[in-house]
């Protein structure tokens, strides 16, 4: 264990450099640069709100806030896992030449997406104020689902990174899976519509939806602890995924170099 902590300390600078690189290169050569982090969720939320509020004749005035909470969390999960999955191949040049603890690559991918995600929360704050949802003390508890989401994303990212080294098809398969996950996260429809119609299990088994639900609760100024199962389930799943992710990654990392 001490060995790992020492190793981590030694490569802290590398981790930071890789995170910085991810953020810097993401928007390099675009005119608006980092502003896209804010602009992109605004634009997609505007479209979704426009389409689905007429669709459902939604009475919820703050529907854009509802969409944003789901969409921001989902897109972090999607981008984070995607980057982590491709990170080994993306850094194959380094891996082939220099020894570095390999988990740094997927981990840095998730961290840089998390930072971009945190920046994009500014949009949510703006929307909250615009639609008259003012933060209170419960809003602070929003940190809890975000932390769990981070751990969950790292875990899933590690698993995907390992698998995709050996089977590149995983990259395409995961895109399909992400689409499925998006539709089962109640991002742009009212979750009760599904929960009340006997198909609620789809949402109940989805840890990402549970996290979105907790996060929404906090954003709307309510207590997520009122129904603790929605918090405990994703927390448990995340820890298991995280441990399993690191385990499978560690078990296979020496073989990576023969496949990239």
């Amino acid at each position: 264990m001490k060995k790992y902590i020492d190793g981590f300390k030694k490569y802290r600078f590398l981790l930071r450099e890789l995170v910085k690189k991810g953020i810097k290169l993401k928007y390099r050569r675009s005119y608006l640069g980092i502003i896209w982090t804010l602009l992109e969720p605004i634009l997609t939320t505007a479209v979704l709100a426009l389409v689905f509020s007429t669709f459902y004749s939604n009475k919820n005035k703050a529907f854009p806030v509802y969409i944003l909470t789901g969409r921001l969390l989902y897109s972090f999960f999607a981008a984070g896992t995607r980057t982590a999955m491709k990170s080994i191949r993306a850094h194959s040049g380094m891996i082939k030449k220099v020894y570095v603890p390999k988990y740094i690559y997927p981990l840095s991918g998730v961290i840089f997406n998390f930072i971009i995600f945190l920046i994009s929360l500014v949009v949510l704050l703006g929307a909250m104020i615009l639609y008259g949802i003012y933060p209170n003390w419960w809003t602070i508890t929003a940190v809890i689902p975000l932390l769990i989401l981070f751990i969950f994303t790292v875990g899933v990212g590690m698993i995907l990174a390992t698998v995709s080294v050996f089977f590149r098809d995983m990259e395409y398969l995961w895109e399909v899976a992400l689409m499925l996950i998006m539709y089962t996260c109640a991002i742009f429809y009212d979750a009760d519509m599904l929960l009340n119609k006997g198909n609620g299990w789809i949402l109940k088994i989805n840890p990402l939806y549970a996290l979105i639900k907790c996060f929404r609760e906090a954003v709307y100024g309510g207590s997520m602890f009122a129904s603790p199962n929605w918090l405990l389930m994703p927390a448990g799943v995340s820890v298991v995924t995280f441990v399993f992710g690191f385990w499978i990654f560690k078990k296979n990392q020496d073989k990576f170099i023969l496949h990239i």
Binding site: K10, Y11, F13, L14, R16, E17, L18, M94, V98, V100
Partner: peptide, 11 residues
């Protein structure tokens, strides 16, 4: 900076 960090040096 990137290469230096890959080689395990501090900032």
């Amino acid at each position: 900076y990137l290469y230096g960090s890959v080689l395990g040096y501090s900032k």
